[in-house]
Simulated scan of single mutants.
Amino acid sequence: MTGNQTGAGRIQQDMAVAMRRPGLPMPTLPRRNRDANVHYTLTRVGHNGRLADRSLIRELGWPARQHIAIEASADTITARAAPNGNSAITKDGFLLLPALTRHRCDVHNREQVLVAAYRLPELLVIWTMPAVDGMVASRLREHLAGISDALAG
């Protein structure tokens, strides 16, 4: 390389030099492995209760017209395969949340929900955004408490 290099060539040379310099030591953080048994997606609920994303239905191997038992609490919905279930996967492979379930969990058209598919047991769990907000806020409080403790100690 020449001494009067400019532009992209000079940037590449500077980057090569910077990459050779030793940096600050980095701590080794404990690695938390994800549970391979669970898969997540964030999806919207249509006006008829249809979950827009059907990838987790396929993940569980639920075929079209599979009977599903759906249960709901204030902010969580569960769905599992059941021969005498109160619902079924549509012919196109979508899950429809019944109106009563949507009403009970206060889920409206175009709202997002967090969906988790657990392979064992075959279970789909759907959380409303207020439920997700609560879970995230709880973890954030724990995190901030840990920071406060570390600073005080």
Rank of each mutant, 00 (worst) to 15 (best):
L124P: 10
M129Q: 06
V107D: 06
L96A: 08
A99S: 03
L123F: 13
L123E: 10
N84R: 12
L123T: 12
A88F: 12
H108P: 01
R119W: 08
E111A: 10
V132S: 01
G93E: 05
P98F: 10
R104V: 09
N109S: 04
G93Y: 05
G85V: 06
H103W: 08
L100A: 14
R104E: 09
W127F: 07
V113F: 05
L124H: 13
V115W: 10
A131G: 04
L95N: 06
V132G: 01
L95D: 07
R119M: 07
V125K: 10
K91C: 05
V113K: 11
L120C: 09
I89F: 13
P130Y: 09
V107L: 13
W127I: 08
A88M: 11
L120M: 11
K91H: 15
L120Q: 14
D133K: 11
P121W: 12
A82V: 11
L96D: 08
A82Y: 12
E111M: 14
V107K: 04
A82N: 10
Y118E: 10
V107W: 09
V115T: 01
D92H: 07
P98T: 05
F94K: 04
V125R: 15
V115Q: 09
V115H: 05
Q112D: 08
L97A: 00
V115D: 03
I89Q: 00
Y118C: 06
D133A: 14
V132F: 03
G85Q: 09
A117C: 15
A117E: 12
R119K: 11
N86V: 00
D92T: 08
P83G: 13
V125I: 15
Y118A: 07
V132N: 02
I89R: 02
S87A: 11
N109W: 13
G93M: 09
T128G: 03
G93N: 00
L124T: 06
R110W: 10
A131R: 14
I126E: 13
W127L: 15
A82P: 01
V115M: 07
L96W: 11
M129N: 02
L124A: 07
E122L: 08
P83T: 11
M129T: 07
L97W: 03
T90P: 07
V107A: 01
Q112R: 14
L96G: 04
N109G: 00
T128P: 04
N109I: 00
Q112V: 14
L114Y: 05
A131M: 13
R102V: 02
D133Q: 12
H103E: 10
L123G: 04
L120K: 11
A82M: 13
R102Q: 05
